[in-house]
Design a protein around this nucleic acid. Structure first.
Lengths: 228, 228
DNA sequence: ATATTAATTTACCAATCGGTACATATAAAC
DNA sequence: GTTTATATGTACCGATTGGTAAATTAATAT
């Protein structure tokens, strides 16, 4: 069993090992690597840039993470479980409207947050690439597809709960929301502000399909008003 | 005056030159280069891949186009004047609704056309990059900004012509349409079909703001129905 | 024919790419 | 202490990166 595999199956478990202990914090180094990949994409991040940011040298990186490609996959896992965990939270909102409202509003915040590199790593990490990165490109595409599937399933549930009109297609709504989300990522990378993204979100929410309930229109959602 | 500069100012002008004539077609080679850059992005396209596709060797490429970066800039110009010239045509449609309808409908076709690499080169050519490509990244960002400005100006004209409600912001609408467009590009690269993109476009058009004209609602635009 | 001009081919450049061999350093186990 | 196991630093690997020097080839001008 190689060293980085041992690390993978023993995250944060304190086991007395013999041999020289690592001189760096595994999780912290992974965060530094995430920042580099997030900023420059997979191919745009050189081993030199990664090791410099992580504060370790190449043999240590190989021992602990197994090379550039495996490091990137571990970074993606951490990214999904950390910075974009809000997506899973949004999906558990009680209504489809609230799901989209929370998802896109938090995305507008997330994509333009000062501490974060602009844009989403899963969307932009390897949209285009050379001949050596097709597997990474494929991996990220699969992640985006899984995200869209999650949205679709949530909207199917919403329709079953009479929370979406019966003539609305969950798959089509999911692709619509994913398209908006991905466009917002490109916009953030291009310099769009949080306020500008929130205006886009507001327009999406203003026309979000809701079922007409009898009587007063009290269930009509509030229109999100944002500061430009 | 270097050779590639001579080429730049003498496009398609037949002048008897002395010296050995080029063995390749300038414009055709540029098209081949466009296809490579379009498929793999700026950094993902190596000189080896470019020269192989163009059917020339490196010194010829340097002589005719001035290096990788200048070649890419020339490719972008050709891309704007050729494959995506439909954008300019869309802007001259008579109403804002028709502008967006034509722009996004043709984009759905364009982004998924069998003969084209998936996605838009200006959007995805250098969204993320390493340390040597920031200038190209900046150039493409400026192109996207110019595109959005064009949309905004068109919507300003539309509002002046009472073709958009007075309380709609042209800048906000432009960013909204650009966000949709850029999201569609990511979707196309991820494998979305023309029909799926047209469904997204249909949803955008269904809620496009139009001025309420007196009397019957005859001026209400037809909803675009697409085949999935 | 000869000179001139320019595009071709071949071979090469230094720098960087991701990845490793190897010796050394540092811990626990005995 | 000695042994064993792991991490570190240095120095290196072949391959590829974008870019050229120099010789050759092919055209026109005289």
């Amino acid at each position: 069993m190689s060293n980085h595999e041992w690390h993978a199956m023993n995250t944060s478990k304190i086991v007395r090992q013999r041999g020289r202990p690592p001189a760096f914090d595994h999780d912290e180094a992974l965060n530094k690597a995430m920042h580099v990949f997030w900023s420059h994409g997979y191919e745009g991040s050189s081993m030199a840039a990664l090791t410099a940011a992580m504060g370790i040298n190449k043999p240590s990186l190989y021992g602990a993470f197994g090379g550039k490609e495996e490091l990137f996959r571990k970074v993606v896992q951490k990214y999904l479980a950390g910075p974009v965990a809000y997506i899973g939270e949004a999906l558990s909102e009680p209504t489809a409207y609230r799901v989209v409202e929370k998802l896109l509003t938090m995305s507008a915040e997330f994509l333009t947050h000062d501490q974060n590199p602009r844009g989403c790593m899963v969307i932009q990490g390897a949209l285009t690439c050379g001949e050596g990165a097709e597997l990474i490109q494929q991996e990220l595409r699969a992640r985006r597809s899984a995200y869209e599937d999650g949205l679709q399933q949530r909207f199917e549930r919403a329709r079953a709960e009479d929370d979406l009109p019966a003539d609305e297609s969950p798959a089509e709504l999911a692709k619509y929301v994913a398209t908006i989300h991905q466009g917002m990522s490109v916009q953030a990378t291009s310099g769009a502000s949080k306020g500008e993204l929130l205006e886009v979100v507001g327009r999406v929410l203003k026309h979000w399909p809701v079922v007409e309930r009898g009587g007063a229109g009290a269930s009509q959602p509030q229109v999100l008003e944002s500061s430009a």
